[in-house]
Computed example of a mutant assay.
Amino acid sequence: MHRDALDLTAAGAKATPHFPPIVVNRAARRPGSRLRVVLLNAAGGARFRELLACLQRKPLEGADVILLCEVNSGLRRSPGRDIAEELGEALGMSCAYVREFGFSRQGKENETYMGNAILSSAPFADVAAIAMHNPRPPRVLPRRDRGVTRVGRPTGLITRVKFGPAEISVGVAHLHSRCTPAERARQMADYMESFPTAGRVIFGGDLNTTTTELSDRASMVATVWQMITNPNRFRAPQAYEPLFDHLREHGLEIDGVNVANRPTFTFSGLIPRSMRPKLDWLAVRGLWPIAGTAAVVTPRSPILKRRISDHDFVTVDLEL
Rank of each mutant, 00 (worst) to 15 (best):
V71G: 11
N41E: 07
R273N: 01
S309Q: 09
T266V: 15
M227F: 03
A182Q: 14
G292K: 05
W281L: 10
A43F: 10
F313Q: 03
R36E: 07
T212A: 10
F195P: 05
T266G: 01
V65W: 03
E319W: 03
T16W: 02
L141T: 01
G115N: 07
A166C: 09
A236S: 13
N72F: 11
V148G: 04
G269I: 00
P272S: 03
N261P: 00
R184K: 08
I66H: 08
F265Y: 15
A131L: 02
E100R: 13
K108N: 12
W281T: 10
K108M: 06
P272L: 04
Y191L: 12
K305M: 13
C54E: 08
V172S: 11
D126K: 07
N41Q: 09
T298E: 14
S309I: 03
R34W: 05
T223N: 06
N208M: 06
N110L: 13
S33R: 13
G147Y: 07
V259K: 08
N134C: 15
L279E: 05
F313N: 04
Q238C: 02
A28C: 04
A295R: 15
W281F: 14
T159P: 07
I66S: 10
G32T: 08
L318E: 08
F124S: 05
D216E: 09
P231Q: 01
G269L: 11
I83H: 14
G44V: 10
R186Y: 02
R99E: 12
L68Y: 01
G32S: 13
R184F: 06
A239N: 06
